[in-house]
Design a protein around this nucleic acid. Structure first.
Length: 638
DNA sequence: GACCCGGAAGAGGT
DNA sequence: CACCTCTTCCGGGT
């Protein structure tokens, strides 16, 4: 006898608690995710879900990026599950997300060092989740799904030394029911065990399985680093993935590319090529790539200087799993290496598109400047200004989720279809009017790589391809006046950058306000979300630290004298006095803003981003719904 | 209610 | 351990 019962089986990789508050079973459910030992639990996410699809829940979920991270990858299927009441047919929601370390970092931070994420290996996933793979027989003994409302305990087939953990709860629970841990030890790839510690609550500080372990899963003849795969390797990988993860047949034509190109596919791109498994493939690739990085650098903790980081500065984007010990580097990682790491075998067949963007592989965006201001490039900020002026509504429509920059054609609301996450909004500039230094990593300027907020903002603002104008844009570049077009979105990005996923505009703006007193920044009076840099990046980079500035400010609090240019009408009621920064002698000689950026748009390095953009823009099948859009955003945020 | 401000405490990295 | 740069929280103002 079949019994329809809705339940959620969410495989999570860290020990959090989830409480299901059922208002009306099957209709509405509030899931509260907390992390902690029980006493000091911190709420981490909250979702209101219908039983139809947890993706909807994700769409309506909390602004907490953490939960977006979790839910964004949840998939659903029906499963037959043996239970005390017989075989139940249940709707199972499962998260098959390989969490990236940045998540772990954050969790760890917020849970006082107790919690850590552990990536779930594809092997584990396939073992746990795909009932169809075992002929619909359920979950290897049926232990994964709770056998009734409020059920706790470990089912058959579970041991506590397992590689993966699952939370399960029943939506039929009338009262709040704690989710419970279960451990799954069966693993089809003994060689690939990640040696998870016995207790999920006593994880060592660095429990992340080495991505290198992944190689044990791969076909023997497949190189571990996907970036150097040939087309044949990619095919082999795809075929392996089909079997390994019990995925539907891929359309091989969609994977006619080499490994580098494959790695450039965003999660969404992969999802379009293989709807049910894009996330999975993406995560596997990320993991493998990380493995490659570790090999290459000998350390996973230096993303900024790693070839990958510099090669994919913004691309496959923010969700590039950062190294465990370092925050994600969203910003271009200035490195000349990245240029030398031009595609080695770009037999990838995307025709060049009209987009024609080439990633300037990570130049320091900082111009060498005169102390006098912000370059000559009034025109380049038009995109951002227009955007900011025209459609603030849209830009902050999904506050709380990551609002990705618009697709190449801003007028196309097809952000829902395939928002190439960080594709350029418009193919302009690259004519030398954005002040870029020579991209020389030998610059004497310290490389802050976006670790500092002002640096981060500068990098977004000065992005060669203006991919971030939907977040932040110059209003008057000459004067250093910019507008935060999408405050929540920008805050989200900053949060990702710093591994503070609960970052919001309020907090970020507090950080900005700290810049006031050291004359790095000031508020443009009367204009919302408008600020002005009072020092050019070169100056800032020459400042060893801000406290130095503070000292200087304290000792010489004279009025600003540096900037004299007048602000244009864009800044409304600002008076001249309003944007005169303090002149503080800088430890390094000012150089000219005007010397202009090196136009790297024609660089032979052409770059990964080029590929990514091409692929993104060339593969834009319609996406089913707004939900997908939101999910994509959430996933991207992750 | 959103934005803005700045104090205070503290986290996390260097 | 000191220091720096935020992060987090907050009360208050516009």
């Amino acid at each position: 006898m079949w019994e329809e019962e809705s339940s959620y089986g969410v495989y999570v990789l860290f020990p959090f608690r989830a409480v299901a508050k059922t208002n009306t079973p099957r209709v509405r459910q509030e899931i509260i995710i907390t992390i902690g030992s029980g006493r000091d639990d911190k709420e981490y996410g909250r979702v209101v879900s219908s039983s139809s699809c947890i993706r909807e829940a994700a769409a309506g979920a909390t602004a907490d990026g953490m939960f977006g991270r979790l839910t964004g990858l949840v998939t659903t299927y029906n499963a037959e599950v043996p239970s005390s009441r017989g075989v139940l047919r249940r709707r199972v929601f499962e998260a098959r997300h390989l969490f990236c370390p940045s998540t772990a970092h954050t969790l760890d931070r917020n849970s006082k060092g107790v919690m850590k994420l552990m990536p779930l290996t594809p092997g584990q996933v396939s073992t746990i989740t795909r009932p169809s793979a075992t002929g619909g027989g359920g979950f290897g003994g049926g232990g994964l799904i709770g056998s009734g409302p409020g059920t706790n305990g470990t089912g058959p087939g579970m041991t506590n030394n397992a590689a993966a953990a699952a939370f399960v709860f029943n939506s039929g629970a009338a009262a709040a029911a704690d989710l419970f841990w279960r451990y799954h030890h069966h693993h089809p790839h003994p060689g690939g065990a990640f040696n998870f510690p016995p207790s999920p609550t006593l994880l060592p500080p660095t429990p992340f399985p080495s991505p290198l372990d992944f190689k044990h899963h791969l076909p023997a003849n497949l190189i571990t680093d996907p970036r150097i795969w040939t087309k044949e390797d990619v095919m082999a990988f795809i075929q392996w993935a089909e079997i390994e993860f019990d995925l539907p047949r891929f359309d091989a034509e969609l994977f006619q590319m080499n490994g580098k190109a494959l790695c450039l596919l965003t999660k969404q791109d992969l999802g379009e090529r293989c709807p049910p498994a894009g996330d999975l493939l993406y995560n596997v690739l990320q993991l493998l790539r990380r493995g490659g990085d570790m090999i290459g650098t000998g350390s996973a903790g230096h993303m900024p200087s790693s070839p990958v980081a510099s090669h994919f500065p913004f691309s496959p984007t923010w969700c590039l799993p950062p190294a465990p010990s370092s925050p994600a580097v969203l910003s271009p990682a200035p490195s000349i290496d990245s240029q030398s790491e031009s595609p080695r075998h770009m037999d990838y067949q995307q025709p060049p598109t009209s987009v024609g963007h080439h990633l300037t592989p990570s130049v320091s965006i900082f111009p060498t400047t005169q102390p006098i201001g912000y370059s000559n490039n009034g025109g380049t900020s038009s995109g951002g200004s227009n955007q900011s002026d025209s459609d603030p509504e849209e830009s902050s429509a999904s506050s709380g989720t990551l609002n990705l920059p618009p697709p190449p054609t801003p007028t196309t609301p097809s952000s829902s279809t395939s928002p190439p996450p960080y594709s350029p909004s418009t193919p302009k500039q690259s004519n030398g009017n954005i002040f870029f230094p020579s991209g020389d990593s030998n610059s004497i300027e310290p490389n802050t790589n976006g670790r500092l907020l002002w640096d981060f903002l500068q990098q977004l603002l000065n992005d060669t391809h203006q991919r971030f104008t939907s977040f932040i844009a110059w209003k008057n570049q000459e004067m250093g006046v910019f507008k935060i077009v999408d405050p929540p979105g920008l805050a989200k990005l900053w949060g990702i950058q710093k591994n503070h996923l609960s970052m919001n505009y309020d907090k970020m703006s507090r950080a900005l306000r700290y810049y006031y007193r050291v004359n790095i920044l000031r508020k443009v009076q009367g204009e919302r979300h408008c600020y002005q840099f009072l020092r050019n990046p070169s100056e800032l980079k020459c400042i060893k630290n801000i406290s130095l500035l503070r000292q200087q400010m304290a000792s010489s609090p004279q009025t600003p004298t540096t900037t004299t240019a007048k602000l244009e009408s864009t800044t409304g009621d600002m008076s001249d006095e309003d944007y005169k920064p303090t002149d503080l002698s800088m430890p390094c000689p000012p150089t000219s803003w005007q010397e202009g950026p090196q136009d790297l748009s024609t660089s032979a390095t052409s770059s990964s981003m080029q590929l990514q953009l091409n692929m993104s823009t060339s593969m834009t099948p319609p996406v089913s719904s707004e939900i997908a859009k939101t999910t994509v955003k959430l996933e991207q945020a992750s």
